[in-house]
Amino acid sequence: MSADDAPARLGDDRAQRSVVRRRAAFAVLTLVVLAGTVWYGVSELQRARAEQSAPSQVDVADGILDAPHVLFRSTAPGDLYGHAAAVALDDLSGPREVTSVVCDRVSSDGTTTVCLRTDRGVVTTYEAEVLDAAWRTTATWPLPGIPSRARLSPDGLVATTAFVTGHSYSQTGFSTETTVHRVDGTDVSGNLEDFTLLADGERVAPVDRNVWGVTFVDARHFYATVQSRSLGHTWLVRGDLEERTLVTVLDGVECPSLSPDGTRLAFKHDAAPAGSATAHWTPAVLDLASLEVTVLDAEERNVDDQITWLDDATLLYGLARDDEPETTDVWSLPADGTAPPEVAIPQAWSPSVVR
């Protein structure tokens, strides 16, 4: 090496050592960040487990399930979170009887209970479970995605809706699968999207059809929602399990729920301004004889739920708390809209009335 090459070689060595130092510093920083991330993840997991195992601060009692009651999913923080529970029909804010069964959605007639569940593990799965009056499993079947809606008919039929993709009815591009089974697990309908859709007597075959929100009339007939974004419709339909048809009744009706006297449907009405990117659902009631709609604007919040009838005069639905999104309450609202909503069952979701 000549004298003229020495400075250049020295500069190269210094540059290489600088690169090595920077790489070493980056490696150390990466390890520190990784260690911090692992520590935070472990800490959060431990905190979450501690919260889940802490006693839920609710009053409990026995014997409630043996009398008229409202069954629901408990959202009281702690060890009872997610469990199916019940309060007395004449004391909705009173003590609750809690079962060992964990559900995302629940529906019951007192003799049979349907529970939709998310089973989290290495691979998360979803299922529908049918239980008898002693809370023993009598049937199960898989769901294709996140549980959304469940309805049990007095005739032994079970309607379930699950999201195949997407996480909310307010999102574009979501896909649902709605089916009807017997309580023994036998598939009655297949995917309701495959039924013949008739609008004004004409067959309609939208490629982006979605069906959800079944409410039963009898062992053959039901109401539900059918939406086609490409056609710009969200129809109330009357379904026929024998004819395998869905006949449109009215546009703009989502998640219908038949009143105990069979004369009205409660549903969620999109009250958002025209052209709005997101929906704002307000409870409404449809008179089936006149097709007259009464929007219950005494409720100003966004009610994204399938409403339940407490009786012929009162509606029930779930709402998340603003400051505790994991905690929901079941609210009541007069079906004629003459009074504001009130909390009916605190720390609850998915109510089902059992008389």
Rank of each mutant, 00 (worst) to 15 (best):
D240S: 04
F222I: 01
A274Q: 14
Q227T: 15
G275Y: 08
P273N: 08
G262S: 10
S276L: 05
P260C: 03
Y223L: 06
A272R: 02
A277M: 11
A274M: 11
T245G: 07
T245N: 06
L241K: 00
T215W: 05
E243R: 14
L250K: 11
W235T: 02
H233C: 09
L265D: 04
A224G: 02
L236V: 03
T225I: 05
R244S: 13
A272S: 15
R238A: 12
V237Q: 01
A274Y: 12
A271P: 08
G232C: 06
H233G: 09
V253P: 00
Q227V: 15
Q227F: 10
E242R: 13
H269P: 10
L246E: 05
T225V: 07
A224M: 10
A272K: 01
H233F: 14
V226E: 11
P273Y: 04
P260S: 05
Q227M: 13
R229F: 13
P273W: 03
D218P: 07
V249G: 03
F222G: 01
Y223Q: 01
P273I: 11
H269N: 13
R238T: 00
R238P: 05
P256S: 11
R264W: 02
Q227E: 14
S228D: 08
Y223F: 15
A219W: 03
L265T: 04
T215Q: 00
D261H: 10
H221I: 05
D240L: 06
R229P: 12
D218S: 06
S228E: 07
D270K: 03
